[in-house]
Every structure is written in C-alpha cells, then in structure tokens.
C-alpha cells in the first residue's frame, strides 16, 4: 500500500527492476518459510515489540496521568486508575484564565492551518515553476532554495525578531504567520512531485487549446499534484504546530500564543504551584490529539513524503 503510492522517478515499467512492493505477500509465502525458524521469529518480533513499547509507553503514561488529580498523580502507581478525574482536569484546563487554553489551541490551528494551506501553495507554485518553466538563473535560484533548506531555522529567529521590532511587528500574529510561510524543503519536494505527476504533454495540449500558464496550473497542474500538495501541507502543519522558539521570541501577549508556548508557561507555574501539574498534563494530551488523529488518518501521505524527501 504505502510503497505503491510513492512518487518515484518515472521509469518505463519494462526496464524498471522488479521491486518488492507488495513484499508481505511474496515474501511470506510457503517458499520463504525456510528462512526463519521459530527462534528467529521470536527474536525479531520480540525486538520489534520492545522497540515499539519504548515509543508508545510515554504517550500511554500521558493518557493515564491525565485521568488523575494532583494527589493521585504523586500517590498512586502510574498505570493504575485513581479517582477518575479526567473530566475534572479538562474542566480545570478550560476554566483557567477564562478559557485561555482553548484560545491557544485555536491560535495553533490558525498558525499551522494558514502556514500549511498558503505556505504549501507558495512552495508548490515555485516547485512547479522550477520543474516546468525555462528561465534565466534557474540553477542558481534553485541553489539558493537548497541553501535555505540547510540553514537552521533557529539561527534566523533572533535576527528575525530584531527585524520585526524595527518595523514594529513583534507581538502581532504576522510575526509568526509570515515566517512560517517559507518552506524551502517544500519547494524541493514540489519540484520532484511536479516532475513525476504532471506530464509535460498534458500542459502542451492545454496550451494548444489556448489555456494560459496560470490557468493550466490551477486547472491541471495543481489537481494532478494534489497528493504532493497534501503531503507538503501535512508536514508544514506539523512543523508549525511544533514550532516553539519563533512564537516564544516574537509574542508577549498571552492571547496570541500557540499551545506549545502556552503549555510551557503553565509548566513554569507548576514548579512553585504543583496544583498546575494535572493541568499541564491534561493540556498536553489535549494538544496532541488533533495531530495524532491527522497522522493516523493521513498515513498514506506522510509515508510518501518521507520517501520522496530522502530516497531520491
């Protein structure tokens, strides 16, 4: 499933090496039983279970911990259910500072949503142009994009803050929204997607029919690249949702904060006031649920995105 949706470079089917795409079906057939005895089966799957447990247990702990009040958190065994206080905790989270938490959650959705939808469109347009158009300085411009991929984001945050304060834009939503629109890696991915999803012939035919380049992008190119667009948007959504340093530096008004920075402020409160701890934990759980749901539902897209980015 996952492998068949990958946008690989277009090779003609007859010359391409047969790949183990449906590997399960053709490798666990009767002939391959020779490969593994019971012992190796046990070792391999046992190690896989241990590895997955390491990944899952901390998240499970968060789920259990969010059902406890402050006393049970320190008093009862971690994976036991104390007095079930999940709803009480959620109510406390909602009450604090007049529902500020849900405002943070809304801000995160807004920053990540705009960043994902608009930022990816900007990247896809640029990647499409790099793939389909001929123009001067194409290679050097693309080189610029690649350098952009390599510049650590956090190295530009402080100077960006200083620039923003020159023009009086700190502590506004624009201070976060504009920088998150920039995704050089998205441009790189979009160029790959454009090369593998949009046949030049289709665009030529559209041109013969009199469609201009902009029209043919929006009515042909973009729909054909839609899976790529969704992949880039998904990764950008996660990237913005996880962003910590940029909003931390740019925003002082608590009403503008995304949930990541907001929760870290609560964590700061919880050091002198332990009664904040259940709220930090419950808030953390509430803030990862949207992402977990998105990831489980959009599995196909993130898998293909990861592959395009690195195997190529």
């Amino acid at each position: 499933m996952s492998a068949s949706t990958l946008p690989r470079p277009r090779t003609t089917p007859d010359t391409a090496t047969p790949r183990r795409t449906g590997s399960r079906s053709n490798r666990t057939g009767p002939s391959s039983n020779r490969g593994g005895g019971f012992a190796s089966k046990l070792t391999v799957n046992g190690l896989l279970i241990i590895g997955s447990a390491y990944m899952v247990v901390p998240v499970l702990w968060l789920v259990f911990a969010s059902t406890k009040n402050a006393a049970d958190l320190y008093g009862t065994s971690a994976y036991a259910l104390g007095n079930f206080s999940l709803f009480e905790n959620i109510a406390n989270v909602a009450k604090q500072d007049g529902g500020l938490f849900f405002r943070w959650l809304g801000n995160s959705v807004m920053y990540a949503g705009v960043g994902a939808v608009l930022g990816s469109l900007i990247s896809v347009m640029a990647g499409y142009a790099f793939d389909k158009f001929q123009f001067r300085w194409k290679d050097s411009l693309f080189g610029f994009v690649l350098v952009g991929v390599l510049i650590p984001n956090t190295a530009t945050v402080l100077p960006m803050y200083l620039l923003a304060s020159l023009v009086g834009m700190t502590n506004t939503i624009w201070a976060v929204l504009i920088p998150v629109l920039c995704n050089p890696f998205g441009v790189y991915l979009a160029r790959v997607y454009s090369a593998s999803y949009v046949p030049a012939e289709t665009l030529e035919a559209a041109r013969m029919d009199g469609a201009g380049p902009i029209r043919s992008f929006f009515s042909l190119g973009l729909p054909m690249m839609m899976p790529g667009y969704i992949t880039i948007a998904l990764f950008q959504f996660v990237g913005v949702w996880n962003n910590f340093m940029l909003p931390l530096v740019m925003l002082q008004d608590q009403k503008l904060l995304p949930v990541s920075v907001g929760i870290s402020i609560w964590q700061g409160y919880s050091v002198p006031q332990p009664e904040f701890t259940p709220m930090v934990i419950t808030g953390s759980l509430l803030s990862i649920i949207p992402l977990l749901v998105a990831f489980i539902m959009l599995q196909r897209f993130w898998k293909s995105g990861l592959t395009t980015g690195s195997v190529k």
Binding site: V56, N242, S260, V261, S284, L291, W302
Partner: peptide
C-alpha cells in the same frame, strides 16, 4: 506505533 512520537510536538 514507531512513528507515533513524531506526532508529539517537541515541547510535549
């Protein structure tokens, strides 16, 4: 399962 942690933001 192994990808699950990546859906958890760095702060969390």
């Amino acid at each position: 399962l192994v990808f699950l942690p990546h859906a958890v933001p760095g702060v969390i």
